[in-house]
Design a protein around this nucleic acid. Sequence first.
DNA 1: CCCCCTTTGAAGATC
DNA 2: GATCTTCAAAGGGGG
Length: 558
Amino acid sequence: MPQLNGGGGDDLGANDEMISFKDEGEPEEKISENVSAERDLDDVKSSLVNESENNSSSSDSEQAERRPQTRPDLESYEKARDYFSEALRRQQDGGFFKSPHYPGYPFLMIPDLSNPYISNGSLSPSARTYLQMKWPLLDVPGSAGLKDSRSPTPGHLSNKVPVVQHAHHVHPLTPLITYSNEHFSPGTPPSHLSPEILDPKTGIPRTPHPSELSPYYPLSPGAVGSIAHPLGWFMQQQGQPMYSIPPGGFRHPYPALAMNASMSSLVSSRFSPHMVTPPPHGLHQTGIPHPAIVSPAIKQEPSDMSPSMHKEEDKRPHIKKPLNAFMLYMKEMRAKVVAECTLKESAAINQILGRRWHSLSREEQAKYYELARKERQLHSQLYPGWSARDNYGKRKKRKRDNKPDSKPEGKGSRSIIQRPRFSFSFLADFSIRSKKQCVQYLPSEKMCDSPASSHGSMLDSPATPSAALASPAAPAATHSEQAQPLSLTTKPEGRMHHHHFPLPGSHSTTPILSRPIPFSSLHPSMLSPPSPFHQAALHSHHALFQSQPLSLVTKQSD
DNA sequence: CCCCCTTTGAAGATC
DNA sequence: GATCTTCAAAGGGGG
């Protein structure tokens, strides 16, 4: 196939990426181990989240209902999807703290209901039809038990999975799917798409080989059944009918439940009509806007474009960037985290997610990297001419780099961050001048984010060949390469105060770096007082791989 | 109402 | 080639 990366799936690079997130066994970890601290945090959290705890009884359900309803269809739909995923995960995992297996993804493979890349929320009538599907099953029995005992409202956890009631018109899975072979580019059918992708007879788009498509999107009939499923790892891990739906739970066999030939056929029969329909501009063939497409309504900054440009812009749908591995992870896990904690602020949640991300094993991360890679591939096929630059300036002004004062960090404004005005700043009590402000949220995380989960995964952490395989191998020589985790090793460089390992040249893939130190042995939480060695290891390890925390550290001066 | 915050990663832009 | 910047998601908070 005309792939850029040959789809080897080897360009992922979770290698250096995964680092044990914690640095120098600081307070953060300690806090997590400290029960009393936990309580304090809990208090903080309560205040933070206010009613959540108090209204625990309603919070869960509230979340479920509130969210979906508070936003436009699409968005609510997406949220619902998250919940749905979570619910599923729970159902299948039977445990919260299991390492995330990416459970939600299989759902992604639903025939396109809507496009994940779309955000304008404009659903076509046909789309709405599908969206009406309900999700009865999520209230998984047994899910109740999986919750961590510390959960404020264990009993509600299962309910949390509001999924079920997400917006009436919005299908929960919608966003996950699609990208089908819609060709959004006006007048420019994805030349990349191989002929096989389209059904010669019907002209209906067929799903390309699994290796080419993002798991998020529908796979062609039989593709999954006869070919090694791209998410085979996932399927195998589940080892059980994760899709098994409670009898009577579903009225329709949900496609995602069993992405197999039968399902596909079902899908095609059900959805074909729409698929064949010539997609309106910017709309998916299903009539649903492609997920990556956002309504032109998006504010256009009166930047410096000529009127003509504006025109063009206006008529051109906004194609969103493909999600990266972390974003995919976030989407999947956010609901869970939110459910676990009472925190609602995304900023806080994201911090937790960031930590969790780092706590993932290589394999686990690799899954997401792989997914992201496919995502990008598919995206590039769907929107051959699209460039990330196209979206520049569409987000209004991005928070400008931090003030001049913290110039030293220089590198990416991203890390510098943390301005005082952050709403959670009051939490500073816990980490005044703390190296990492994120510590502020750790408490909650610890509470919700069972370290066990991360630890567990870390323990398993790889070092095994399989892991290596799973991990992104040498990336193709494209700039995506830089994105590879390995390349990340260079990032921290600037911020590092010192490191014990030689920095890998951007090109040198020092094994040491790719497989730093067993996380299990490094994870701070596992070392009460980190031994000098561990500290050193952690430090260097962290320094080498972690940009965020480090930057935060340096930022402390602020 | 809009932007910020927060996270990591990808990719374009700049030096 | 190394850095820097922007944008992806998300949703509460603040101006």
